[in-house]
Computed example of a mutant assay.
Amino acid sequence: MIQIVDSRTIAAGMRAESMHAVAARIIPVELDFPEPGPVVRGRLADLGGLRISSIRSNVTKVERTPILARDDLAPSLMLGLQVSGSSLVVQDGREAVVRPGDLVVYSSTSPYTLVDSEGYRQHQFRMPLERLALPRDVVRQVTATRLSPGHPVADLAAGYFRHLAGRPGAFADAGADAVSQSSMELIRAVISTHLDVTSAATKASLKATLQLRILEYVRAHLGDPSLNAARIAAEHHISRRQLYNVLAAGGISLGDWIRNQRLEGCRDDLGSGLSQHVTIASVAQRWGFRDPSSFGRLFRAEYGLSPRQWRQTATKAQPALASDPTPARL
């Protein structure tokens, strides 16, 4: 869902309160607007676990205060992509001046300040820290820091996130989770590139989250029928034997886990009213099953019903879903 933000549609006397409410949908912060008051235009969008805000505003200061940093928001990481001009980002005892194309991260769990005398001009991407699958001490090393400016990985990421912020509606709901996970993988790559990954402390921290990062990678690529152990191991710079050992330590069998995740994805899609005009074969293919017949046998063995029976049973139990393609206005 995309929500359009335009302060011109709000009565002048209510704009400041309304724009604080909009900001709270991204992350609760204090805002300083110059006279004659707020001027804000942009949009918000959710893609899986990723919340995207693309905002231009005359706000000159955005502050996550110490009190707000202790609120009930799930610990989150914000990635900022500077669009134009320059901004000052302050957090964890560091300051960074970011310019067009620069990437910077800041965390919800400690106070931060963004300052721009010409107004806020960033694309921002918020994601849960737990899904980023990096230890907090690793993240804390890169807050309020320009992330590897000029490095090919950072340049790739800047182009990717610029495109994502510019066209969030181009990604169908069915692909939102995959886009979200791929985005988090890219952020991890940028952070890892920026850090001295040869240091013992960083290597230990990354090793501690290896299993979670592997599973997040696999989850993001479940729709690819060519996904296999060799590819997964190569993506994480380990051998296949190491891959199996890491997963076995958590009681996970790779093949069984992939199959179960794919079946659960198919079951959820087939049980949704939105799937009524999609063939069962298309749903199976979306989740990485090449052969409809073998998919049907696996589904029945797991759930006791054929995919068609499950869809009929599940959709009868819920009301028809209505969709409104018109973006909501705030």
Rank of each mutant, 00 (worst) to 15 (best):
M1E: 03
S7W: 04
R8S: 14
R8L: 09
I10A: 05
M14K: 10
R15L: 04
A16G: 03
S18C: 06
V22Y: 00
A23K: 03
A24M: 00
E30W: 02
L31T: 10
P34D: 10
P34H: 07
S54W: 07
V59N: 10
K61D: 03
R64F: 08
I67P: 01
I67E: 15
D72V: 12
L73E: 06
L73W: 01
P75M: 01
S76W: 06
L79R: 01
L81A: 02
Q82V: 11
G85C: 10
S86M: 04
V89W: 08
Q91I: 05
D92C: 01
D92V: 00
E95F: 00
P100G: 13
G101Y: 03
L103R: 05
V105R: 04
S107T: 10
S110R: 12
Y112S: 13
Y112A: 14
D116T: 12
E118H: 08
R121A: 15
R126T: 13
V138N: 07
Q141L: 14
V142C: 12
A144Y: 12
A144C: 14
G159I: 06
F161V: 14
R162Y: 09
R162T: 13
A165K: 01
G166Y: 00
P168Y: 11
A170H: 03
F171K: 00
A172M: 05
A174V: 12
G175K: 05
A178Q: 12
M184A: 00
E185Y: 02
R188Y: 06
T193Y: 00
T193A: 04
H194S: 04
L195V: 09
A200L: 09
A204D: 14
S205T: 04
L212F: 12
E216S: 09
G223T: 04
G223H: 04
P225W: 08
P225E: 08
H236W: 02
H237I: 02
L247Q: 07
D256W: 01
L263G: 09
G271I: 10
S275R: 00
S282E: 15
A284R: 01
W287S: 06
P292F: 08
R297M: 01
R297W: 05
F299G: 04
G304H: 06
L305S: 11
P307G: 06
P307N: 06
R308Q: 15
Q309V: 10
W310A: 14
W310K: 07
Q312I: 07
T313I: 01
T313S: 07
A314L: 06
T315R: 15
T315C: 15
Q318Y: 04
A320T: 08
A320F: 04
P327L: 05
